[in-house]
Design a binder for these strands. Structure first.
Length: 612
RNA sequence: GCCGAAGUAGCUCAGUCGUAGAGCAUUUCCAUGGUAAGGAAAGGGUCACGGGUUCAAUUCCCGUCUUCGGCUCCA
């Protein structure tokens, strides 16, 4: 996973130091936290007491940094004994560094291993007692740091301060909050420029912006935050994706079920979700004393469906699917467009099976996910989450062992690109999460397959085996799209709103050249034929220039625009303008040929136009 | 939830202690138009909401809601 060259890392890390030097020159009372190298750059956490920095201060900091770079001071490594280092931190009044050094002295580690930080005197994960600590000096500025650095301040590459935000000291909510300043840094300016352009591009593709422009969804202050409302256009996307997910599942023997959106709290207490899941919406009854919850997940409901009767081993696996909405009271600051909402719809499903079914069921699920992603033109890879040695997992260890072997085997057999994450498994079982990379190379987790050995136990589920004994089924949780809202967020950004015909809210726009009676009547007639073929269309009869109408259709990213004027009326042929990503053709087609093509593209879920 | 920033027309944004403006969009009219913006006019705002300071608040202050950038969290 290491992608940055040491040189780049040296540049970034050195720039973090240079920024810190600049800050302490500008604000001599600055206290520093940590300042690691991150993707595309670096950051430094700083505490300036009452002073709040804003992006307006960036110019000042950047110009001070440039001065330091121009001064061409060497980066010089200094070693100190741990006691001497502590004294340094006290004298230079750096309480956060002091805390880290005291931790180093006491425990031999700063417990910051997740941060990928380099400025500490020891390597990540080292636990031996440290005696010596490494520092780096550039000019007057000395910082606790293990390096490496460029030889002198003038040797860093191109940089730009990017943003500022709050960050808890050591990532803990009960610790003071510092100001985190992010910077971009690259070896040469062209790479920096490219990255800045990518950021602009990402902003243009932001699903929240496109959702507004393409009229897909909206939020209302009256309805509440994190509760998206889908317009007719947005609903076409939701419903078509959802329907495709169900179509795939039906082919693999999943049966559709329906469960209510609230349940008694006891259900979640029994499942164990209640305590582990504080983000709940409560519902109380005015008739009785019963307390209910909006369902934050569907597994307990599906379990109750399974539990309704005794099962024979002959009837397994039992596969339920339900596209339904869950409600989670996410913390307000965590909401983000469609990617993080309080009402999320899942294409959820649960399999109840015996151990010997696990392999086949996993394979089917992976097959469905792979099919779905390929039809949508998405790149993906999988995270394989297994146990570590921490021992905080529930369920039969032998079953765990067996299933982890199966999961690895299945991943191999299905040629999945996988990364194994030890220790990332849920407490109830190992899982495979599918990550989608969007066209800007950002990664998102969408589909998931999880084995579960715990819930069947908690709800005392059983089936009658061949020998008449009662056996415990294994449960498999799965979602292909995951949260449909999250999926749409990713998909909108991936496609930049250029949806294939089968998903396009409006597939065809008819534009009239003028308002004459025969033009309108021809357009209406075409519309009627499209309607009968179940094609989604609108007619633009407005008295605007043709090029303006074309522009509007283009901005709405409509796959096909058809101009209707005397030429079409005479020849009875249409010359569709095809959205540029789908193909390129200027030919004229008979009306029925055109309609047949759209119907086929829609049915076969094609990504490109069949007319080009 | 925490730190910081912001909320003015459907959208993107100017602006001011003396109750508001542009472009796009909308409507109407003119132009009969041919593949990314033809012209003109009109309508449209409790300046997020509530409270305070003031002769006067959209403007200053406080609170609430919502949004944005992060942090934390994500069964």
């Amino acid at each position: 996973m290491q992608t940055t060259s040491p040189n780049l890392e040296e540049t970034r890390h050195s720039l973090a130091h240079i920024m810190a030097s600049a800050i302490i020159r500008l604000w001599p009372n600055a206290k520093f936290g940590v300042g690691p190298v991150v993707d595309n750059g670096f950051y430094y956490d700083v505490d300036l007491g009452e002073i709040k920095l804003s992006e307006d201060d960036f110019e000042k900091i950047e110009s001070e940094m440039k001065k330091i770079i121009a001064e061409n001071e060497p980066f010089e490594q200094i070693e100190m004994g741990i006691e001497q280092a502590i004294e340094w931190a006290q004298q230079s009044e750096q309480p956060y560094k002091l805390e880290l050094l005291n931790d180093l002295k006491r425990e031999g580690t700063t417990n910051l291993k997740d941060l990928n930080i380099l400025e500490l005197g020891i390597a990540n994960g080292e636990t031996s007692k440290v005696e010596k600590v490494s520092f780096y000096r550039n000019g007057d500025f000395i910082d606790l740091c293990r390096g490496p650095h460029v030889a002198s301040t003038s040797q860093v590459g191109a940089f730009k301060l990017l943003r500022i935000s709050g960050a808890y000291w050591r990532g803990q909510t009960n610790k003071p909050q510092m100001q985190r300043i992010y910077g971009l840094a690259f070896i040469d300016g062209s790479e920096l420029k490219k990255q800045l352009e990518l950021i602009v591009l990402a902003k243009q593709r932001d699903h929240r912006k496109l959702g507004l422009e393409l009229d897909l969804f909206t939020f209302s202050e009256f309805v509440g935050s994190g509760l998206p409302l889908f317009t007719p256009r947005g609903s076409v996307l939701r419903e078509n994706l959802s329907a495709y997910s169900q179509e795939l599942q039906r082919k693999y023997g999943y049966e559709r079920v329906w469960t209510p959106h609230i349940a008694k709290e006891e259900l979640y207490k029994k499942s164990g979700h209640y305590d582990k899941f504080p983000e709940r919406f409560s519902v109380s009854s005015t008739e009785t004393n019963e307390k209910f919850m909006m369902k934050p997940m569907n597994c307990p409901h599906h379990i109750q469906l399974f539990a309704r009767k005794p099962w024979s081993y002959r009837e397994l696996p039992v596969r339920y699917m339900e596209n339904t909405t869950n409600y989670r009271d996410e913390k307000s600051g965590e909401l983000h467009g469609l990617a993080r909402v309080r009402s999320l719809s899942q294409d959820d499903g649960h399999v109840f099976c015996s151990e010997k079914h696990i392999e086949k069921e996993l394979k089917s699920i992976i097959k469905m996910i792979v099919t779905l992603y390929e039809v949508l033109g998405l790149e993906y890879y999988a995270h394989l989450s297994t146990r570590d040695k921490s021992g905080q997992y529930l369920g039969d260890p032998a079953l765990w062992e067996k299933s982890e072997v199966i999961i690895r085997q299945v991943a191999q057999d299905t040629d999945l690109k996988t990364v194994e994450d030890q220790g990332e498994a849920a407490f109830y079982g190992p899982k495979i999460d599918f990550m989608i990379r969007d066209s800007l190379q950002r990664e998102w987790q969408c589909a998931t397959v999880q084995l579960d050995f715990v819930l069947p136990e908690r709800f005392d589920l059983g089936y009658i085996d061949k020998d008449g004994s009662i056996k415990r089924p294994v449960m498999i949780h799965k979602a292909l799209l995951g949260s449909i809202e999250r999926f749409l967020a990713v998909y909108i950004e991936h496609t930049a709103g250029r949806f294939p015909v089968w998903l396009a809210p409006e597939q065809v726009r008819i534009l009239t050249v003028n308002q004459e009676e025969n033009t309108i009547s021809f357009a209406n007639d075409l519309a009627k034929q499209l309607r009968q073929a179940d094609v989604r269309y609108t007619i633009d009869k407005s008295n605007q220039s043709v090029s303006k109408k074309i522009r509007s259709a283009e901005l709405m990213k409509i796959p096909y625009s058809i101009v209707i004027g005397d030429k079409e009326i005479e020849t009875k042929k249409l010359q569709p303008r095809i959205r540029s990503d789908m193909g390129n053709s200027h030919e004229a087609y008979d009306i029925d040929v055109f309609i047949t093509a759209i119907v086929k593209e829609s049915r076969d879920r094609l990504l490109k136009s069949s007319l080009s």
